[in-house]
C-alpha cells in the first residue's frame, strides 16, 4: 500500500506541479523586493550578517528555477533534491525560531506579513515529503531507462 503510494506516477506528477507552483509563487515577491527579504532573513538571527544579502539574492532565484524545472521535468533528480534540501532547511529554521520564542514575520511568501507558526512548519514538512517522493521516483525512472 505504502509502496504503491510512493511509486504512484500520477502522484509524482501532481507533486511536481504543486511543489513547483508553491516555489514559484514564493519566489516572485522576494525577487521583486530583495531588501525586504534580507530583513526577513535577518530577523531569524541565525544567518551571519555578512551572508544575509547573499542568501536574500540566491534563495528566491533558487526557488524560482527549481519550481520551473519541477513543473517542466528538467534535471528532475537535482531539482527535487534541492527542493527537499530547501524545505528541510526551512522546517528546521521555523522550528528552531518557534522554540526560541521569536515574534517575527515568517517571510515565507515575501511581504505577506504572516507570522511564524506551527502551521507553516507542517506546510514545509508536507512539501518536503512531496519533494522526497519526486526525488525517489526520478531516481527510479532513471534506473528503468538504463
Amino acid at each position: 500500500m505504502f509502496r504503491k503510494f510512493i511509486d504512484n506516477k500520477l502522484l509524482t506528477y501532481i507533486a511536481r506541479v504543486v511543489v513547483g507552483f508553491v516555489l514559484i509563487i514564493a519566489s516572485v515577491p522576494k525577487i521583486a523586493e530583495p531588501s525586504t527579504f534580507a530583513k526577513s532573513i535577518q530577523a531569524y538571527q541565525i544567518v551571519p550578517g555578512f551572508l544575509v544579502n547573499l542568501f536574500a539574492l540566491s534563495i528566491p532565484w533558487l526557488e524560482l528555477v527549481i519550481g520551473i524545472f519541477l513543473i517542466f521535468g528538467l534535471l528532475l533528480r537535482g531539482s527535487s533534491l534541492l527542493s527537499a534540501v530547501l524545505f528541510s532547511a526551512f522546517s528546521v529554521l521555523i522550528a528552531v525560531s518557534l522554540f526560541r520564542g521569536l515574534s517575527i514575520d515568517c517571510g515565507c511568501f515575501g511581504l505577506d506579513g504572516a507570522p511564524l507558526s506551527w502551521s507553516r512548519f507542517f506546510e514545509n514538512i508536507g512539501l518536503l515529503l512531496l519533494s522526497l517522493q519526486i526525488f525517489y521516483n526520478s531516481l527510479m525512472l532513471r534506473k528503468c531507462r538504463l
Partner: peptide, 13 residues
C-alpha cells in the same frame, strides 16, 4: 547523478 544536476542548477542560479 543527482549531485551533479544539483550543482549545475546552483551555478546557473
Amino acid at each position: 547523478n543527482s549531485l551533479q544536476e544539483a550543482l549545475i542548477i546552483i551555478v546557473f542560479v
